[in-house]
Amino acid sequence: MLNDQLMLLERSFLNPRAFPEERYYSHVLWAPRTGSIVTFPGLANSFSRASGTEPGSEAWAEVQRQLSIVVAALEGAAAALRPVADL
């Protein structure tokens, strides 16, 4: 059971739409980044691109999209780590 949970935990951080410009990367937590922030590179990269632009711009819409991807990944990870009743 524990191995299954660990596999599901890792899988919860995979999202093929996390990096539309880099089709070979799908891990929400670890991927190549352009900024100095190590984790959640999609969110960090989109935030660094949006900084200095007008609120409501397309760049900030991408930040919101990346944030929703991170939240969904964290919710999936939390669900994967919930205790499983013995059968």
Rank of each mutant, 00 (worst) to 15 (best):
E10S: 15
A72W: 00
R33A: 11
P16Q: 05
L87E: 14
Q64M: 05
A61P: 04
A73D: 02
F13W: 13
E75V: 14
V70A: 11
L87N: 13
A31Q: 01
I37M: 09
S12G: 11
F47Y: 09
F47V: 08
M7P: 12
V84F: 01
R17G: 10
A44E: 03
R17I: 04
T34F: 01
A44D: 03
G52E: 02
A44H: 07
W30C: 00
W60E: 02
L67P: 00
L6V: 13
V28F: 01
L87T: 15
A77F: 02
A80F: 08
S51I: 14
T53N: 08
A77M: 04
E10C: 15
A31P: 02
V70F: 04
V84H: 03
A80K: 06
V38A: 10
S48E: 15
E21R: 00
A73Y: 04
W30M: 06
E22S: 09
E22Y: 05
P20K: 03
E10W: 14
L2N: 14
H27C: 10
A44Y: 02
R23G: 11
V71S: 09
Y24M: 10
S36W: 05
F40Y: 08
L2Y: 09
G42H: 01
D4P: 12
A18W: 00
I69W: 00
V38P: 01
S12N: 07
P41S: 01
S48C: 14
T39L: 08
Y24L: 09
G56L: 04
A31Y: 04
L14A: 03
V84K: 05
A73S: 15
V63E: 07
I37T: 12
F19M: 01
E22H: 09
P83K: 08
A80C: 12
L67T: 04
Q66K: 12
A80D: 10
L6S: 04
A85L: 14
S51W: 13
V38W: 11
P16H: 03
A72M: 01
S68R: 14
L6R: 09
A85K: 15
G76M: 06
